[in-house]
Design a protein around this nucleic acid. Sequence first.
RNA 1: GGGCGGUUAGCUCAGUUGGUUUAGAGCGCCUGGUUUACACCCAGGAGGUCACAGGUUCGAAUCCUGUACCGCCCACCA
Length: 918
Amino acid sequence: MADAFPPRLNPKAIEASLYRSWNESGYFHVDPEAVTAEGLTPYVIVIPPPNVTAVLHMGHGLNNTIQDVLIRWHRMQGRASLWVPGTDHAGIATQNAVERKLAVEGLSRHDMGREAFLERVWEYVDQTGGQILEQLKTIGSSCDFDRTRFTLDDGLSRAVREVFVRLYEKDLIYRGEYIINWCPRCLTALSNEEAEGEEVQGKLYHIRYPLSDSSVPLAELAHQSGAQAIDRLKDGRWYLTVSTTRPETILGDTGVAVNPKDPRYMSLVGAKVALPLTGRTIPVIADEFVDPDFGTGMVKVTPAHDPNDFEIAQRTGLPILDVMTPEATMNENAPEAFRGLDRFEARKKILSALEDLELVAGEDPNVHSIPHCYRCHTVVEPRLSLQWFVRMKPLAEPALEASRNGMITFTPPHWKKVYEGWMENIRDWCISRQLWWGHRIPVWYCAGCEEIIVARDEPQTCGSCGGSELNQDPDVLDTWFSSWLWPFSVFGWPEKTKDLQAFYPTHDMITAPEILFFWVARMIMAGYEFMEEAPFTQVYLHGTVRDKHGRKMSKSLGNGIDPLEVVDLFGADALRFTLLSSAAIGSDIQLDHEDLEASFSPGRNFTNKFWNAGRFAVMSLGDDPVPTIEEMGDSLELEDRWILSRLQHVIEDVSQGLEQFRLHEVSDRLYHFVWGDLADWYLELIKPRMQADSQDDSRHAGRATLGVVLDCVCRLLHPLTPFVTSALWDRLPWPNASERPEALMVAAWPEADKTLIDTRTEERVADLQELITQIRSLRQEYAIPEGARVTVKLGAVGPDFRAVLESQQASVKRLARVDTCELDKAPDGVGAHAVLKNGVEVFIPLDGVIDVARERERLQTEISRLMVQVETARKKLSNEGFLRGAAADVVEKERSKESNFQEQLDKLRGKAATLGEF
RNA sequence: GGGCGGUUAGCUCAGUUGGUUUAGAGCGCCUGGUUUACACCCAGGAGGUCACAGGUUCGAAUCCUGUACCGCCCACCA
C-alpha cells in the first residue's frame, strides 16, 4: 500500500492517468439522440473560445475551472452535460503575432502575398490551438473534445456567410463611407468597442484664425456684441480663436462653426476665414452641435478627421477634405511643407509654424481620454472610410427585452444595468477589417458594371450584366462576427442538426466582464435574430486575476502565471481549489507570481489533507466487509450521529451554493468540514475504536459511518477537485460491490437525508468540544508540562451533559491529555479555573503539577511591573500641564495605553487569584 | 461629465435579505509538540473603535445621506 498510497499526495502519479481513463470511457461525450430519445434534461455550456494567439493564462484557469465545476456537478445530477470546447481565430491579434514573427525573418506579409501568408498563419494556429486544448485537459476540463470547434473552420465559416447574406437581405447590413476608428499601425478599421479610451496628458491649443478682409465689418459687429474671442491685434487685422488638441487637423479644416443661438456670434455667420498655412478660405457656419459655453464657443470643423465634424458637414454641406494617408502621415491634400510627415511630427511643425506667425494664442494642459487600438495600443485616428456596417438597433430590441423581463439574468446582478445601458445606446457595428486573417467578406464586385453581389457561395457571373469578371471584397470580417454566432454555430447551424435540437439553447455563460459588449451582448442579439431564442439564460461574470500589486496579469508586464507550471508544482486540484476558494462572487483575485508557493499552498495543503484523511479511512476500513449505517442502527456512537448530522448540512449548503455560483462559499464550507469536523474531531474521536483486531459493534458502526461520510465528501468535492477525490474514491471499499457506480464522476450527487439531522447531538458534541478546547487552553496558559499528570474536576454538570461525559470520558482524557476526570468536585484549593457556556465549571488543581510558588512569583513580578506602568500613565493623565501641552493624539494614545495596562492587570490578577492569595 | 464597484486583523479577503458573532478564514507572527492519516502536520495564543461624519432603528460591518481615497466602465465637448 505504501507505494499506491503515499502519505504525501503526488498529483503527477494520479492526474494524467485518471484524465485519460475518463476521456477514453466517453464520460465527456453526450449523444444528441440520447437526449431526444430518452428525454434527458441537457445541461450545456459553450466555452468562451480562447484566442489561438497565446497559451492559456491564469484568467483562463479560473474561467475554465468554474465551467468544469458546473459541468461536473450537473453531470452527477444525472443531466446530459455537454461542454463544447474550441478556440477563436482572433483576427487582428493573430495576424499581428504572425507578422511579428515574420518581421524577425525580415519579411512582411506583402512580401509573401496573401496566400502564402495565410498558410503561415494556419501553421501557427494549428500549433497554438493544439496547445490550448492540451492545457484544458491538464487542468481537468471535462469537455467533449469530439465537438471541438474553431471559429474559422468550414462549418462556422458557412454560418458566417449565411448570417451576412441574411442580414444584408433584411437591410441590416450596409456599406457606406463614414468616420471610423482607424489603427494606423494595424492598417484596419476598428469597431467602437475595439478603440479603448486611455487617459493622456495632452494640451489644448488656442489658435488664431485671421478673418478675410471682406469679413471685417462682420467681425466688428460681433466684437461689439461682446465676443471676446474676436479681436483685433496690433497688426490691425481681425482674428477669431478656436481650440484644438490635434493642431495637425487644421490642414483639413473646411469651416468654423458657432451655435446658431449664440448671440455673440450670430452676426459672424457667413464670414470668411483665411485658414493659416494652407492659403484656403473657409466659412463660418452655424450648427446646433456647438456648445457656446465650451472654450470660445467657436469650433474648427474637420469633417474628414472627426466624427462630429463629419456630421456637421453632412448637415451643412461643408466640403470634406482628407489630409492623411492610411499610415497617418500627411497626404497630398496637405501643404507641401507637411506632406509625408507623421501626424505627431506634423503637429509639432504646424505648431512652430503657427508660432512663427504669432497665431498661437495660448495652450492649456488638458487631460483627456483618447482612443487606442485594443491590440497594439497605437493612437486610433478617426478616418473617413468606406466600410461595412451592421444596423444594430433592430437587433438590440429583443436582447434588451430579455434582460428587462428576467429571461436572462446576470451574476453579479449589477451587470444587468451595464448591459442594458449599452443596449439602449447601441451604435452601428463596423464589421469590415482590412486584414487577411479572417472570414472573407462574401461580397463580389462586377468589373463590368456597378453590380454588387452578396452571396453564400462564390458567384460565377454577374446577374446584371452577365460579365464573368467578379472581384471579391478584399477585406475580412471582425473576429467577433464569427464568435457572436458561437452558441449555435458550434452545433452545425444553419443546418437543423440533431445537436442543435438537443443542445440549443445552452444554459450558463461563464466569462469575464471585459467581453460583455464584445461578445456576450452580441451573442444574445444573434441568438434572438437567428434562433429566435436566447442563447443562454444565466450569465456569470467572474473577476480578473491580478498580481499582488493589483495589476492585471499580462505578457508585457511579465507578471503572468503559467497554469501548467502550477499544475506541475502542486497539481491541477491545488490550482483549481486555490482559484475557487479565493474568488468570491464576481470579485478579482490576487496572486503573487513571484511566490507560487505562497499563492497555491492553500489548495495544495487542503488536497493533501483530504488525501490523508482518506488514507486513514482506508486503513481503518480494512478488508472486512463494510456494513451500512442502517445495519449498524443503534450501535452508532454519539460522534457517528454527530458527523452524519453535520454532513447533511454540508450537502444542503454545497448544493445551494453551486446553484447560485457561490463557489467561494462552497469551497470554504467543504474545506472546514473536511479539515475541522472530519479530520480534527471525528477521526480523532474514533481512533481508539478503529483498532483492526476489534470486532466490536462500535468499531463496525464507526466503519460504516466513516465509509458513508468519505464517499459523500468525495462526491461533494469532486466537481472542485476531480483528481484527488477520484483517486481516493477508487481506493475506498464499498458496502455492496454490485451497487457501486462505475466511476466517481458519474456517481450520483448526494441528497441531504433530513432524518439524520440531529440538533441535540450537535449541541452535545459542541459542548464536548468546548470542554476539550478549554482544558487544552488552560494547560497552555498555566504552562503545564506535556508529561504532567493532570486531574480535571468538573462542577455544576447538568444531567444531559453528564450522560455525554459518561460515554465520552475516554475521549476527553485522550484529546485533552487528562489522567483523571472527576465529576461533581467543586473547585477547591489552588488551580486553573474556567466556566463553559453551558455553565459547567472546569477546575484543574495545580498543586504538584506545576511549581505553584514559582508561577506565583512570576505573576507577582508581572503584576508589579504593570502596576507601575498604570501608575505612570495615570500620573501623566492627571497632570494638567501634560493635558494642556501635548497634542490631542498623544493624549489619546496615553489613555489607551492606560486602559490596556489595566486590562492586562485585571487578567493577571484573576489568574493569580486562582493560585491562591499572596 | 455620467454610471458602477471597493475601503473589515501585518497581508489577501469572507460576512446571504439589519439581530446568537463577545466581527470570521487563509497566510504571516508568538508559545508548545517525534499524539503510528498528514510537519503540505497537531495543540494553544496575540492581533480589528468593520475609511470618515451624520441619520434611521430596541439593535447597523450590514439600511439612508454626505465626505475622502482607490479601482473599473461608459461618453463627441473641440
